[in-house]
Design a protein around this nucleic acid. Structure first.
Lengths: 232, 232
DNA sequence: GAAGTGAAAAAGTATGACTTTTTAAGGATG
DNA sequence: CATCCTTAAAAAGTCATACTTTTTCACTTC
């Protein structure tokens, strides 16, 4: 959604709507947008189309562009996720972390059954690197490996929809570290679980891969909630 | 995406791309679209913007509108889901059913903790109606209740992203019955599980709500896979 | 008071001109 | 011969304007 007039305006308007500046039911008029953003009619219309495809707004003749109820927005769109994070980090992070607890265990189980040899090898390798960097206290490199581990796991699940959630997972993981919410040294239990999951996937042990991942994300879930409470 | 010139063309092009008529990497030109669909430049551009917001295509100057790799598409968009179902039902249904097995148990667990009294009551009521209609052999009404049950459960989970998957669940449930893949009389075990889940949510029993739902969707998952094999 | 009628408002569609960016070809230079 | 710079063309991107269609509201008529 970068560079370009269209993208910039979409981003601004999307942020505003996400932040509640234009609450559901309120009406935008194309002509207003032209003037506010100093854009031509065609750009204004394309912006509205983009937001409409996210189900955030709906154009109606003789009425205008109405903002739809939040419950109907396509909250799986990565752009919208970013706007919602900017508007209300606490609530949105809760939602995303809970989504992880649902998806990642099943994805790990699926990966144990379906991952290619290469992917399984790479997962074990990544878990090893995480262990090393955790012991060395190298949080940034640890985080990169963590992101790579979960992304690869989702991809190796063989389910396109799971795979697509890698952006969500990355956003949450990087946010946690970025906020300084990670302990100086990653919890030993988390490191161990990553290794165990990788080995179960490698060995094709669906059951254990799933339950180990469940343990991992449950811990991450509770940890995140606690830290969110502290912030609020 | 109904009525209107724009919507019709988006639907046609979206279907084509989903079906592989324009494989990833291939290039569409706006001018081509104008001629093929006999539409004006503005409509053609808005169609491209809509598809671009689903991450299916990417406009590049001096190049054209490039179809992106399938792995980057926003496969959570309900329209795209419909196009993919039309193009390759078997694979897409597998993906969607597996998504259910991940999300619904966690959603049920969350609902047990967070559902309002009204929602919990209504769930019990729906489970009761399902039981009655199952015994009466009234498959259509049973299906309506089934859809309502799962939609409400997802909404009652209090997680916006879970709630949004109600369209996916509905699509899968209706497809299964529509294809005649349901036994004449719904499995007694499934009916019982719906009642159990509703009662657990009502009683605030997170653990049992989650595990009962896990049992239910696991059964649905395996049943669907078997029936898909038979078809292929 | 209900129902039909008309007018206005706003999105939707069409068209053509102009701008910008990117790519590729061609030429100059080492 | 290879490399770098210049330049030209292609296609999307942007702008301005006129016209069409649908929907809603107000007004009239029965």
């Amino acid at each position: 959604m970068s560079g370009g007039l269209h993208g910039r305006v979409v981003d601004m308007l999307g942020r505003e709507i996400s932040a509640g500046v234009h609450p559901p039911g309120s009406v935008l008029r194309i002509e207003e947008l032209e003037q506010r953003f100093e854009i031509s009619r065609s750009v204004a219309r394309e912006v509205v189309r983009t937001l409409a495809s996210l189900r955030m707004v709906l154009g109606r003749k003789r009425v205008g562009v109405v903002v739809r109820p939040r419950s109907e927005w396509n909250t799986f769109d990565p752009n919208l996720i970013r706007w919602l994070l900017a508007a209300d980090r606490v609530n949105e992070v809760k939602t995303l972390v809970e989504l992880r607890t649902a998806v990642e265990p099943v994805a790990a189980g699926a990966a144990a059954q379906r991952a290619s040899g290469e992917d399984a090898d790479r997962l074990v390798e990544l878990a090893g690197e995480m262990t090393a960097h955790a012991e060395a206290g190298d949080l940034n490199t640890f985080l990169d490996c963590d992101v790579a581990f979960h992304s690869l796991m989702l991809a190796a699940s063989g389910n396109e929809m799971f795979a697509q959630l890698h952006e969500v997972v990355e956003e949450v993981l990087r946010w946690r570290t970025g906020m300084g919410l990670m302990p100086e040294r990653p919890a030993a239990i988390a490191v161990r679980l990553h290794r165990e999951i990788a080995e179960c996937v490698h060995g094709g042990d669906r059951e254990r891969a799933e339950s180990a991942m469940r343990e991992l994300v449950a811990e991450a879930f509770e940890g995140t909630l606690e830290l969110l409470e502290q912030q609020a």
